[in-house]
Design a protein around this nucleic acid. Structure first.
Lengths: 127, 127
DNA sequence: TAAATAATTCGACATGTTTCGAAATGAAGA
DNA sequence: TCTTCATTTCGAAACATGTCGAATTATTTA
């Protein structure tokens, strides 16, 4: 894969990729349930790594791996608290993703203009 | 995909996976730009396969492969029109995905309750 | 200090994805 | 019909992902 020209498409695609695994998606939904826009979860509402693995039937190392990926793309935050590591969803990331799907009304958000214009200017070439 | 309810994490994850490749994402955004909620693109607004490949620097067979995947998960529709194949985004699919990110306010939409309860009932086991 | 608990890193393996080019199919026009 | 254009299918190669168990690190408790 050598010719990804559009930075924003790549970034957005990474967010979707992080949610494209059912296990990671379940983990994220459970973390995001207690988040409100612009406000992170209170410390006592955060979940630890072992807790998030319950019900998933995955090895702890695999849960850790998935959390690392969610954190890498900025969907969650993690902070050590004693023996445990607290996890919580990034409320801004949620808002960003929600905004993405509002462009259906016709307005293309600024961050998406860049990677739509490339095709706009070639429209009609083949018909 | 036969109806508009997101049944489980696996199905939702498939939608995200379809958007997790930058090329597929770009194709989808270009198709979705002209869609409004509950209203599909007019036939003269639809794009054909070759058109959608412009600017992506991908072999036609690869573009075809990506479109097939977007169609498989229900994000777009395709219809042959002469030599070309018209493509357009499914407006309901857009709405479904937009709804997903609204649960951040605290309300879990009905279709997501099913796959969050498994972890809710084990909360507290490890702390 | 030693043991116990929680989480991460590492190495390995099976599986899945992305991509291409060649060949096949479908449709329109000379 | 024969050719041309648009698209799809197929097979193969390169690369990425998901998973585990063993070993390691970090922290608390005995």
């Amino acid at each position: 894969m050598s010719n990804y020209l559009i930075k924003d498409a790549e970034e957005l695609a990474e967010l979707f990729k992080a949610l494209s695994n059912p296990h990671r998606l379940k983990i994220f939904v459970n973390l995001a349930r207690c988040c409100r826009p612009g406000q992170a979860c209170a410390p006592n509402m955060r979940a630890c790594v072992g807790e998030l693995g319950n019900g998933l039937e995955l090895a702890p190392s695999t849960v850790s791996h998935h959390l690392k990926e969610l954190r890498r793309v900025g969907l969650i935050h993690m902070k050590r608290a004693g023996q445990h590591v607290e996890c919580w969803a990034d409320p801004e990331a949620l808002a960003r993703l929600g905004d993405f799907f509002n462009f259906a009304g016709g307005d293309v958000p600024p961050q998406l203009v860049a990677f739509t214009t490339a095709q706009q200017k070639t429209k009609g070439d083949q018909r």
